[in-house]
């Protein structure tokens, strides 16, 4: 109970009582909605925080180790990589804002891939094909990055072969469509289904998190679509509306 609604009149009529009741119900309904909204926002903030905390220690220390090696063999490259590393972590540790533009998210992904390519060399082949029209589209912060990290990991795990990674973004009228695809080990679709359902036991924690935030932002029609099978590589498709009410970077 938060408070009371009182009506003052010279005499009580059935109509007035009903009207008062209606007003009280409406107010309490609105209050509940506001609370739900606040709760939802807190949840999303917590999830983004969790995701940010997930920047893999393996990635951090292996990158620094590679840079340490280049300091000796190729100092210019070491310096360049160090700057990329700084910018990448700065973006990922960013504190403000639930949303970002695809342009910013993709720029950060490019940096991430540069660092990974420094570590893995020719074993990691990347193709980027981005339609410039979709760059200003607003999306949840860190909603593509985890998909790319998964793709790199899966791609390289395909026993000793080269990991081919493709990132496509195209314009589809009122929507933007992004695809992150690798030629790696693939995954059992049942496990993917469970990861999307939020089963934290699986190692693709990022997948469930991204899916939940896309749905929370754009509605249930905009969940992730994952096409995969063991040994057949993985393709994750993200569809987002170009404009959505209340979604601004």
């Amino acid at each position: 109970m938060l408070g009371t609604v009182q009506a003052f009149a010279m005499s009580t009529t059935a109509g007035l009582v009903r009207a008062t009741e209606e007003v009280a119900e409406w107010v309490s309904g609105q209050l509940e909605l506001a609370e739900l909204d606040a709760h939802r926002n807190r949840m999303i903030e917590a999830e983004v925080r969790a995701l940010r905390a997930q920047i893999s220690p393996h990635f951090v220390y292996n990158s620094l180790n590679a840079i340490a090696s280049f300091v000796r063999t190729d100092p210019d490259r070491a310096r360049e990589l160090l700057l990329e590393f700084a910018d990448f972590t700065r973006y990922s540790f960013r504190r403000h804002g639930e949303f970002t533009t695809l342009a910013e998210e993709l720029r950060s992904i490019e940096r991430y891939l540069l660092l990974e390519q420094a570590r893995f060399g020719d074993r990691l082949q990347v193709t980027l094909n981005i339609a410039p029209e979709v760059l200003p589209v607003v999306v949840p912060f860190l909603c593509i990055q985890p998909l790319v990290e998964n793709a790199v990991r899966h791609g390289l795990e395909g026993a000793d072969q080269t990991g081919h990674l493709t990132i496509l973004a195209h314009d589809r009228g009122h929507e933007a469509v992004l695809e992150v695809e690798d030629n790696g080990v693939g995954e059992d679709p049942e496990r993917v289904r469970r990861a999307l359902a939020g089963d934290a036991e699986l190692d693709s924690v990022g997948l469930g998190n991204v899916d939940a935030r896309l749905r929370a932002t754009f509605g249930d029609d905009y969940g992730l679509v994952v096409e995969t099978a063991p040994g057949a590589g993985t393709k994750v498709i993200v569809r987002v509306p170009k404009f959505a009410p209340g979604v601004t970077a």
């Binding site: 292996n62 180790n65 590679a66 340490a68 090696s69 280049f70 000796r72 063999t73 420094a118 570590r119 893995f120 060399g121």
Partner: peptide
Amino acid sequence: DDERPALDELSY
């Protein structure tokens, strides 16, 4: 080590 720079550094 599967990562060339890491392998170079450690060998060095």
